[in-house]
C-alpha cells in the first residue's frame, strides 16, 4: 500500500509526463507535413559555400545569373556549323530527303527518334502523330469553354502529321520545322540537339509511311 503522496507531486508528475508527449508528436507531424519553413539547419557545416553552382543566383551581375548567357557569335563546343545538310536540312538548294552523311538510317536512329518524338512532340501531335496529344486536347477544351476561352487561350489544333501536305514534306523540311518552328509551333532548336532533331524527322517519316504504305509493298 502506497503512502499518501502530496497532491502537487502527483499532479506535477502527470502533467510533466503528458507534456513529454508533445515534442515527439510535434516531430512526427513535421515529418508528415510539407512546409515552407524548412530545411532547418542546426549545424551549417559547409552546406553553403561561397561558390556558384549551376543555375544559382549571383548578385554581381545585373540579371542575377551566375551562369552567363551565351555571348553573341559564340559557338559552344560540339555545336559548330557542320554543313548545310546537317544544320539546315538543305542539299543544293533543295530540302534534303535523306539523313546527313554523319548519321546512319538504322533501327537505333529510328528508336532514338521515337523516344525523342514521344518526349517533345507527342504532347501536341500525339504518340501516333494524328495531332491528338493531351496538351492539344486540353487547349481545345480551354478554347471551347462555355464562358469564353479561359485566360484568353488561343489555339489552332495541332497538325496531324498524316495530312497530305505534311506527309509529302521531305525530311529536311521536317527538320527545319522542328528547329525553327512554324506558325504557332515554337522552334525546338535550343531544346533538342541537332542529331536528335534529325532522328525525330526520320521517325516522323517512318510514322507517315506507317499510315500511308503503298499496297504493293
Amino acid at each position: 500500500m502506497l503512502p499518501k503522496f502530496p497532491k502537487i507531486l502527483v499532479y506535477g508528475l502527470l502533467v510533466g509526463g503528458s507534456l513529454a508527449l508533445i515534442p515527439p508528436v510535434a516531430f512526427a507531424r513535421m515529418r508528415a507535413t510539407p512546409s515552407p519553413n524548412r530545411p532547418i539547419h542546426i549545424f551549417y557545416d559547409m552546406d553553403f559555400q561561397p561558390k556558384f553552382k549551376a543555375q544559382a543566383p549571383n548578385p554581381l551581375f545585373a540579371d542575377g545569373r551566375a551562369m552567363r548567357p551565351i555571348a553573341d557569335g559564340a559557338v559552344a563546343r560540339g555545336e559548330a556549323y557542320a554543313d548545310a545538310h546537317m544544320d539546315e536540312g538543305v542539299v543544293e538548294g533543295q530540302w534534303a530527303v535523306t539523313l546527313p552523311a554523319q548519321m546512319e538510317m538504322s533501327t537505333a536512329t529510328l528508336e532514338r527518334g521515337q523516344q525523342r518524338f514521344n518526349i517533345y512532340c507527342s504532347a501536341c501531335h500525339g504518340y501516333a502523330g494524328f495531332g491528338d496529344g493531351a496538351v492539344n486536347k486540353r487547349a481545345m477544351e480551354l478554347v471551347a469553354n462555355a464562358a469564353g476561352p479561359v485566360n484568353g487561350t488561343q489555339w489552332v489544333a495541332a497538325k496531324s502529321l498524316h495530312d497530305e501536305t505534311t506527309r509529302n514534306q521531305p525530311m529536311g523540311q521536317l527538320f527545319n520545322t522542328i528547329t525553327h518552328g512554324i506558325r504557332n509551333m515554337a522552334g525546338y532548336g535550343a531544346q533538342i540537339p541537332t542529331q536528335d532533331r534529325w532522328a525525330i524527322a526520320a521517325y516522323v517519316k517512318a510514322l507517315q509511311l506507317s499510315q500511308d504504305a503503298p499496297s504493293a509493298k
Binding site: 515529418r31 508528415a32 510539407p34 524548412r38 517533345y120 504532347a123 496538351v135 486540353r138
Partner: peptide
C-alpha cells in the same frame, strides 16, 4: 524531420500534377 517535406512557395504556381500528371508530359520535355 529537419529537411524532409520542404515545400517553398514558388514565384509561379506551376503544377507538376497538371503538366507531368494529367497531361502526361515527359520529365525531359
Amino acid at each position: 524531420t529537419l529537411e524532409g517535406q520542404y515545400q517553398p512557395v514558388q514565384p509561379v504556381p506551376f503544377s507538376h500534377a497538371l503538366h507531368a500528371g494529367k497531361l502526361g508530359m515527359d520529365c525531359r520535355y
